[in-house]
Design a protein around this nucleic acid. Sequence first.
DNA 1: GAAATCTGTGGGAGCGCTCCCAAGGCAGTC
DNA 2: GACTGCCTTGGGAGCGCTCCCACAGATTTC
Lengths: 332, 332
Amino acid sequence: MPRPTIEEVAALAGVSRSTVSRVVNGSSSVSSDALAAVHDAIARLGYAPNRAARSLASRQTHAIGLVVPEDTTRFFGDPFLASVVAGISSRLADSEYILNLLIASDDPDGKMTRFVRNGGVDAAIIVSHHASDSFVERIAEAIPVVFGGRPATVRTSDIIVDVDNLTAARDAVAHLIALGRTRIATITGTMTMSVSVDRRDGYRAALADAGLQPAGEIDGDFSEQGGAEAARRLLAQDEHPDAIFVASDLMARGAIGVLRSAGLRVPHDVAVIGFDDSPLAEASDLTSVRQPMFTQGEMLAGMVIDLLAGRRPEPLTILPTELVVRGSAPAV
Amino acid sequence: MPRPTIEEVAALAGVSRSTVSRVVNGSSSVSSDALAAVHDAIARLGYAPNRAARSLASRQTHAIGLVVPEDTTRFFGDPFLASVVAGISSRLADSEYILNLLIASDDPDGKMTRFVRNGGVDAAIIVSHHASDSFVERIAEAIPVVFGGRPATVRTSDIIVDVDNLTAARDAVAHLIALGRTRIATITGTMTMSVSVDRRDGYRAALADAGLQPAGEIDGDFSEQGGAEAARRLLAQDEHPDAIFVASDLMARGAIGVLRSAGLRVPHDVAVIGFDDSPLAEASDLTSVRQPMFTQGEMLAGMVIDLLAGRRPEPLTILPTELVVRGSAPAV
DNA sequence: GAAATCTGTGGGAGCGCTCCCAAGGCAGTC
DNA sequence: GACTGCCTTGGGAGCGCTCCCACAGATTTC
């Protein structure tokens, strides 16, 4: 038996196509008799509207794109993104929207951008935005967009869910200072992302507060390998740092590996603080800045739904962070 | 400027709608003059076909569903699934297909199943299949399906990419035996999944080969917490095991935590082998069975594409595994 | 009691594409 | 030179839905 069409439902229910459409779309002006008959017919036929036909007629797709300007491996390897996506997916599950995964950098020829701009999705959630990602602007011109994390350049119309990275970083580094550390370095994330800039600035601010000089700022590219490489360069300096603030747990893990194989003890010789408080942090006994990633995902999805429903969500939401103290930078 | 339609492209190129359609869909019988004119018009207009219209007319969606019968948190928390999805996404990127993420257990009312059955996607990739997931059969009735890992019940028509879990587990346990361990326990995955059964059977086979008795088989549910709980129960026995074969790295990490806080040394008192060789294993110096997860994802996606192109992929592909020896169960 | 308003309903006209059939042009064949 | 075939092309007829307009009948208004 092929899929029933709206016409067949109408015939069974003894009403017109239009009435069935009204019922399916929850329109008000349908008599209770007709309503019941249609519901009955739908149930008996196992009817579900054809998405393509619906999209074509209504010019909506009922799909939301998750745009990730990272390569696939990084996307799935990064616990931060994993949690955000989990939150998004969870929130979308009890909506009528479907999630399309759009990994941008697997997309050299712009297939994805074209897809998005050509009505592939009704709206997009963009996470992990880099300054160089020009396609993002072209997407935002075409459809509603919500950002997870502040984009590199903010337009007034942008809707953003973020954490206060600057303050979070500043507090983390203040903890290091309270521990008595004086030669504090940082391993930053990719500097084309504002999240990295903010955390670096927080680091600098905390040092300035205490009258200390930076003991090194190195880009670790948000990858484990990058973190390791950054640590290596930090150790190559005249005097190695006695504390490192690392802008992600993943990089911190890479860095700690290098420190240990150089014979340095954590936290005795070098205290380390990470960022994200991912499962990794707990496993590695790493002091880390917790940010509510799952919640961020949920909010992102909720806002897109609001936007599509014609509501106007808060343009900027700042989520709280918290320093989770563990062995790598213990309590004072 | 609104999106151009095929009709406008045709007008600009001085040909008919049909000819444009032929060009767009790569049909052969188009003169080179027409071909060039159409390509030129497409480029000048920035034309891209409307997916909805195309789907409606052709009865294809050009979307592939990734069906994951797990809850969102587990899905993203599990490095195995992450790598498989990375592989899928990577392979799909240079095809014309879009990936739809369908997290099944966020789906109490069957919205997802209905979506899939009602032409939401052209085909599905199903990973992490449980015996109780009856909806999978209903999906497979409606559209082509490819399985990552052997499903609980195999039909002859099924297309599967798997690893030889039994042999892999057997070899891992043999390694433990070679280490001189005699009280060897196992923490299994969810027993409704064939992957768990196979690994358990491999464990039993290795013990039988050596004439040893099992020192405990406990279901750890493929979660870190489950692994920890299983370890706790193992330790509650009269005599604790001197080796544990754990069916995933994630569970192994949970188990090792419990062992350590019980004052047991790994591997001195208890040797541990995990499964997946995820980044976790390296971080925790865990001996583990490596399986090519990314490759598995790539193959899965490739097979779906083949299937949709009318080709007939190998029904069963078995990928190789390898024991990666690290500190938790060192070389003999 | 006629006009005005409000229900609830049906059907036409698309949405932008693919598929099929028919027709024109051209070469080759007897 | 008429006939057959092939290649290329155009246009009609949908795909299954939503949106809009119109219309009947019930209800209100003066």
